[in-house]
Design a protein around this nucleic acid. Structure first.
Length: 552
RNA sequence: GGCCCGGUGGUCAAGCGGUUAAGACUCCGCCCUUUCACGGCGGCAACACGGGUUCGAGUCCCGUCCGGGUCACCA
């Protein structure tokens, strides 16, 4: 048994004797048996609100890093701030992750539910673990109780402001740092509330060199603040929990938003003091948005930009694959080239590189997202479009879901137009499932809206009714269209018309356009012949006639 | 204010001392096309500013400006 030092006396006063020993914890949470180079990453949100696209960017990188290296991606709940916690925060986060399509290998899977060997993954349940290391720090003289109230700290800041010196608990301002042991014990026994602070050995005039996977070598001043390790409630602050958890969970790569850059020296110090091997860090720039008020760029905000919430994006009907691809275009600009070269390749095969990430914040660009999404959907088979659209509709547009399921073959045929076998002519008419209702409205009598403009086309329509044959193949169908052109004054050949438009009222395109308008109510649609085949003779005839009647 | 990070077309971005400064999105033309699309071709449009270093500088250095972050018992 070692001789009692003042510090161990203090530690005994502060912490119960039956805390697990650090060695014990090391054994309980051993290094992972993973192949060389496997990355263990973590997403560690606090349940203080919903997830937005900026969070996702980080979680997505975590997932990618783990997947690419055969590692593990875990979800940890940082619920150490009970004041800010929202009801159902955990459920919301877990659901958002699921809705967005990021699978978690380990960690929190729901409220009160976890999986994995490095449990618990909820910080509020790890108090003993933190206290073990807090005790170690205290015994080594690296931590001390601070009895300053928040009012004291306010005063402290005010006088520092006055003197024009750096704010914070350090140096001569750290009033409780050198309290005599007797006084510490006395006040503890008197039941005074206290926090446990780091006795920082740092010196801000010295520099440390840290490495960031995205930014490279960084030279930062040493951290010299006596930060709070344990709050008065006994719950750790983020910094302390970060060091303890990421070490014990054997996390190798910490991906987080770059607002943490400033506390990197503190974290380096904490890992060093605790004797832990620090993880590799990647600080990613936050996603920005164009502020409609100022016209400038600003960080995407949870509170001000509800449209960037994951829930809102999913509700809008963006397929996960599209969201994923969009994020990747922001993450690595080489992604778009890779995608063009490998149109069908699964995402995890993309050689994602942290090194290629931009150090400055990207603007969230809904226009680009829309484009990416159109491309993604255009590459899908009709059966997949059907399944995904239906799943979306079931959740957000039950009426549409009913239409899609009423006659699945019909809906399938509708979605197959210009898709599937149609090589070289992918249809890019859908960026979001919510657009399906509008884009394909004319396939459903309930949604179809006739165009009043058909009025002026009654001549064409009546002529077309005579030649329309539902069973025509595509060539015969088009021959039918052509055959009514000349008698009505339209040129059957576009080329001839362009060479000399004078004698004509228009060309074959105008004639088929009139039919299109009557049958679909639209000027732009996929292949008209295919549409008419799907609609069937009865419906086509009805609409052609209705189009004529509009004219009267 | 101290410290830190960033600044290439409207947007996302290649570029790493010598390039006509890629590419993608948007917008605009043209072409192709048996309709609508898809596609193809072309166009508009950028190295924040000032000093160095160098034969030569988006590219290296210094300063200025601008944007962001951080300085909590929030994460």
């Amino acid at each position: 048994m070692m001789e009692k030092t003042p510090y161990s006396v203090l530690a005994d006063e502060l912490f119960p004797a039956d805390l697990p020993a650090p060695e014990q914890l090391e054994r309980t949470y051993p290094p992972r048996a993973l192949p060389e180079g496997a990355a263990v990453t973590r997403f560690a949100p606090s349940p203080t609100g919903y997830l937005h696209i900026g969070h996702l960017l980080g979680a997505f990188v975590d997932r990618l890093l783990a997947s690419q290296s055969g590692g593990v991606f875990l979800l940890r709940m940082e619920d150490t701030d009970k004041k800010r916690e929202v009801e159902d925060g955990v459920t919301g986060l877990v659901n958002d992750m699921r809705a967005f399509g990021i699978a978690v290998d380990e960690g929190v899977t729901g409220p009160g539910e976890e999986k994995g060997e490095y449990e618990p993954y909820t910080q509020s349940q790890r108090k003993e673990i933190y206290h073990t290391y807090a005790r170690v720090m205290t015994e080594r003289g690296l931590a001390y109780p601070c009895f300053c109230s928040s009012g004291d700290l306010d005063e402290l800041r005010a006088s520092q402001e006055n003197e024009g010196v750096n704010k914070g608990y350090y140096g001569k301002w750290a009033r409780c740092r050198d309290l005599p042991l007797e006084e510490q014990i006395e006040r503890l026994r008197a039941g005074e509330p206290y926090t446990l602070r780091l006795r920082s050995p740092g010196d801000a005039s010295r520099k440390i060199v840290v490495r960031d996977l995205i930014r490279g070598k960084l030279e930062l001043p040493e951290y010299d603040m006596d930060v709070v390790l344990l709050k008065a409630s006994g719950i750790p602050t983020y910094h302390f929990a970060h060091a303890v958890d990421d070490h014990l969970m054997r996390v190798t790569h910490v991906v987080r938003s770059d607002e943490w850059l400033a506390s990197l020296p503190l974290h380096a110090q904490l890992f060093h003091l605790l004797g832990f091997q620090p993880p590799k860090y990647a600080h990613i720039a936050p996603m920005m948005k164009l502020d409609p008020e100022t016209g400038g760029k600003r960080k995407l905000s949870k509170r001000k930009d509800p449209e960037s919430a994951v829930g809102a994006l999913v509700r809008a009907g963006y397929p996960n694959a599209a969201l994923h691809e969009y994020l990747l275009t922001l993450l690595n600009s080489s992604f778009e080239d890779w995608r063009r070269a490998n149109p069908g390749a699964p995402l995890p095969e993309f050689p994602f590189s942290l090194k290629k990430m931009s150090a400055s914040g990207a603007l969230f660009d809904p226009v680009k997202l829309e484009d990416v999404s159109k491309n993604v959907i255009s590459r899908m088979r009709s059966s997949q479009v059907y399944d995904l659209a239906l799943a979306w509709a079931r959740a957000y547009d039950p009426e549409l879901a009913a239409l899609l399921t009423r006659d699945p073959d019909y809906a399938g045929a509708m979605l197959a137009i210009d898709r599937d076998g149609a090589k070289g002519k992918p249809r890019k008419d859908l960026a979001r499932w919510s657009q399906l209702r509008e884009a394909y409205a004319y396939f459903f009598d309930e949604l179809f809206e006739a165009s009043p403009k058909s009025a002026s086309n009654s001549g064409i329509l009546s002529a077309y009714i005579d030649v329309y044959r539902a069973e025509d193949d595509k060539d015969s169908w088009f021959a039918g269209i052509k055959s009514i052109c000349e008698p009505l004054g339209y040129c059957p050949e576009v080329k001839a018309y362009k060479a000399d438009p004078a004698p004509w009222k228009g060309h074959v395109g105008d004639v088929s356009g009139a039919v299109r308008l009557a049958v679909t109510g639209r000027e732009n649609t996929p292949d008209l012949w295919a549409i008419m085949r799907v609609l069937g003779e009865k419906r086509v005839l009805e609409r052609l006639k209705a189009g004529m009647e509009n004219a009267i």
